[in-house]
Amino acid sequence: MVKVKKSNGEPEPNPNILIVDDEPNILLSLEFLMKKNGYNVFVGRDGQEAIDTISSEKIDLVILDIMMPEVDGLEVCKRLKSNPETESIKVIFLSAKIKEEEIEAGYQVGADAYITKPYSTRDIVKKVKELL
């Protein structure tokens, strides 16, 4: 059961952004921000939802939490980047994991950016614009 919300009113070809986090309030704030900046937003609450959405929708960028139940963010990114059809999708990790080796692990699986929580929403927006 995939819960996908498609933003309305924005003309194509606005980039499609998928936001994945198991914290409802974080999801809510990021969704608000991205829509505000003119992107089409899809949301997912765990790794499996993210993978399902990516296979059914043309996604340009994923904002991905790492610590999630079942399939974690690192795994999602790894699958994404190893598949030729999806490898061009940009990945931004958002995580409360702040240790050097944890960040290193994020880049190892092919992430384009790694932003630690708590972050400034302004940095997120800036980073997304940079990548798209």
């Binding site: 914290e23 309030n25 974080i26 704030s29 990021l30 608000f32 921000l33 505000k36 610590m67 409360a96 994991k97 702040i98 929580k117 708590p118 972050y119 400034s120 929403t121 302004r122």
Partner: peptide, 22 residues
């Protein structure tokens, strides 16, 4: 513990910034 503290902190900061910027 610090990890668990970061999560609410992130939400608080995010919404505070949204309220301020909008």
């Amino acid at each position: 513990v610090t990890h668990e503290l970061r999560t609410p902190l992130t939400s608080i900061r995010s919404f505070a910034e949204i309220l301020y910027d909008n």
